[in-house]
Structures are given as C-alpha cells and as structure tokens.
Design a protein around this nucleic acid. Sequence first.
DNA 1: TGGCATAATTTTGCATTCAAAATTATGCAC
DNA 2: GTGCATAATTTTGAATGCAAAATTATGCCA
Lengths: 243, 243
Amino acid sequence: MAIASVVNPVLTEDPTAASKVEAEAIPILRRSLHDEAIEHIRDMIVEGLLVGGDWINEPELCRQLQISRTPLREALKVLATEGLIELVPRRGARVARLSTQEMADLFEALSGIEGLAAELAATRMSAADFEKLRDMQVKIENLHAARDRLTYFHENRALHLAIVHGSGNSALIKIHAQLIARVSRARYQAILSDQRWDDSIAEHAQVLAALEKRDGPLACERMRYHIAHTGKVVLASVGKTSP
Amino acid sequence: MAIASVVNPVLTEDPTAASKVEAEAIPILRRSLHDEAIEHIRDMIVEGLLVGGDWINEPELCRQLQISRTPLREALKVLATEGLIELVPRRGARVARLSTQEMADLFEALSGIEGLAAELAATRMSAADFEKLRDMQVKIENLHAARDRLTYFHENRALHLAIVHGSGNSALIKIHAQLIARVSRARYQAILSDQRWDDSIAEHAQVLAALEKRDGPLACERMRYHIAHTGKVVLASVGKTSP
DNA sequence: TGGCATAATTTTGCATTCAAAATTATGCAC
DNA sequence: GTGCATAATTTTGAATGCAAAATTATGCCA
C-alpha cells in the first residue's frame, strides 16, 4: 500500500532515482513497504517532523505509516547505516543528533568529494552535459534575480548533483547522496543571507568556468572552496540555534 | 546466541570497532543477532564463501547462522545499503557482482578519499600518532623482508586505517570503511607480485615522508598515486579471472 | 513528604505465521 | 518427445505472537 506523503514535494524529488534501475530491467511497479518507509522517515527528518535526539516510537510510527513493525524496523536499520538514525541496543532508535564537530566533518568530507567529482567531471562530461549545466546555471541566476529561495535551494542541489553525476563515478555518486542526506536538514534550516546568496552564485559561475575550460584541478579547488564556504555559513547558522 | 565464526580471524579484526561505542557509554555485552549476522555475512563474502552473483538462500543461511529470518533479513537490508548485497524485489538477495567499471570507480573514489584523509592527517596528527605510524611502517618493512604476505596484507590495511583516522574526520572514516569493505574481497584475491610489493613499500615510505613534513598536498598526491596504482594491479588481476 | 524496593506496563528483539508472488513440477495435446 | 497450460511447491514480504529487558507506576517505610 502506498504511504501518503506528508512532506514538501520540492524536497522529496530524487534525481538519482533513475540510477536505481534493476539489472533485470524490470520496472518497479509496487515498491516494498520498508523502501517507502525509508524515504518517508528520511523526508520527515529533513522536514523537521522528526528532530535530532527524538526517540522513535515504533508503535506510533507504525500507526502513522500504516505498516507493521517488521518493515519499519528494516527501514530503521537502513537509516542507521546511512547515519540518519542511531540504534541503541535494547533502548530503541533515535534521530541522530549532529554535533557541531560532526557537521563540520560532513561538510569537510562533502567538499572533498564534490571537489573530486568536479575534477573528474571536468575531463569526462560531454558537450551535451555542459549544455545542461549552463542551462541550469541560467535558471539558477534567474531564481536568484527573482529572489525565489525555495526553488533556488532545489535547483542548486540539482546543479551539484549534475556535476557529481558528470564524474561518471558510481561510488562517488552514492557517497555524495548519503552525505547530502545527512546535511540537508541543516542546509534547509540555515538562513541564506543575501550576501551569501550573491557569493554562492558567483562561486558557481567560477566552478562552471573551470569545468568549461576542462581544468580539473581548478574545478576541484573552486568547488572545495565553494562547499567549505557553504559549510561555514550553515555551521554559523545552526550554531546559533543548537550548539 | 553467538554465531560461530567460520572465517579467517586475520581478516575479521576491526580496528574501527572502538569508534562504535554508544554515547551512553554502555559497554556492549550482548550483540544483537542481526548485527552478528551482518559481520558474519560480510566476512563470508570476503572469505569467498559467498561469491558475487550468488543468490542468497534465506532458509539455508538461517540454518547455517542458527537464526530466524527476521534478523537475517534486517542484516541483508543493511548489507544492501553498504553495497555488498543486491536486493531484487520479489526475487530475493544476491551477492553484489562488481563489474570492472564498478571496481575501477571504487578504487578511484578510495584514492580520492584516502588522499583527502592524508592531506588532513598531515596537519592534524599528533607527534604520538606519527610515532605509531613509523612503528607500523617498520613492522610492515619487516614483514616485507620476511615475505609474510598474509600478515603484511593485514598490517598494510591497519596503516591505511591509521592515516584515515589521523584525519580526525568521522565522516571520512565511515566512508572509507564502506569502500574498503567492498574492495577487500578483490584485494584479498589479487596476487601481489614481488615487484608490486616492493613498489608498494616504497610508495608507503613516500607518503609517510610527506606526512612527516606535514605537507598535506604532497601527502594527498602521493596517497592518490599509491592507491590508483594498487587499483590498477587489482583490476588487472581480477580482470584475468572474471572480466 | 521523600527515598527506595517491588510490581505493572511498555518496548524491544526475535520467532513464527500467513498470504501473495514466483518458481518448479506435472500432465496433456500434438 | 516437444510445447504449453495448469497445479504443486518454494520463496518472499509483511503481520502477528511471545519472551526478555527496560521503563514507569505503585506502595511501603522512615
């Protein structure tokens, strides 16, 4: 049975879904309950319906998702592996609380991963890929001009994802998705100042310029700088609310 | 109940286990069945008892591990998240088969991650950490001289782990562990030629020298070169048996 | 009333059960 | 014997049941 989504559709769209196709090429018709539960809970965390430190009430969540404990517990195991949930033996599951240090670590890793991806993408992306990237950047600049923060947030993520996909490295793509899942709640929460927004747009342009020149090391350096910068801003923002 | 280990203890030792302690500081006395199943199956894959492409017979594995399907299926979900198992809806689980491309991707990612870790470790490791690293290198060189391949294999991995831990970045440490789990079967299988063994020792020395100089970018570059080199050798080796 | 021991309740981890789907076996026409 | 349709069996996904542990509530005594 399908679980009714209570989350913002803008934040649930998953551009990596296409990569999940089976080797058997059987289109997925009915998804399993645990799979739906995974996405649902993941979204609940990003949406803020489940907050870091919250103990998860299994019977309660079962009622909410209209599923039994078996698929829910399977979902919790997966989310724990992804780092979104903590499983405390004989105590239950709680939403992972990110310390400032962990958040800093995540952004540092993300910066390294995306830097690496950009470096590879610079030499591996096709002309068509570059074309798409340029289109996205135009779209993003228009959203910036229109001050549409929510859509910008979404398109910005899509641009980063496109670059990571441009690396053509399946392992990097997967690692990236996991890291993004863990920081997205904080990124979503962080207030994007006008100054930071302007800077971010400029940094993107710099990264794209390096990619266009097919200068891997330069793209890497600029991407690392960009994400490190984003991390600092997000950290400063969450530091005010939960130190 | 404890699951009897059928695997080589040399390959099951986990230097990262210490980082798994609970925030509650409750020492883990009884581990859960699904947790033991996870490690057991992971080891079975590295050991070659489960080979890529094999369908997993649930009742059979339940009998082998002396557990019911619930914890086994939970374990399979986790291993699928880690990338060691593929879950095909309504068909079951099978051991992930690594294509040459996926293997190349994994080593490329690993090279980037360890390079990044080395870069950070260069500036963050304490004098005591360096001391430990030097001791490990000496030990490794002795194993090389003694031609003890199995112990070398183990100690080599410990050295790499020590460097990654030296980065002080929890996210990188976790990502690294997952990547290592996926390539270790192939690394274990790959025949280490005398030439490659000599080279590897020399490359380690180069990395350590860069770390001692606290030259992050150089350590990064040398580590990336070293792992890329290892990847090429492993790929060439597995390419002969399963293309 | 406060502190603590014990009892009741809830929650967890795992086993078992059950229905639906997939696989394999059987039988029948040709 | 071969090809195909149908029946029997196995396997999967999920719900339920159950015992042990943890949490909360209750009552006793100072």
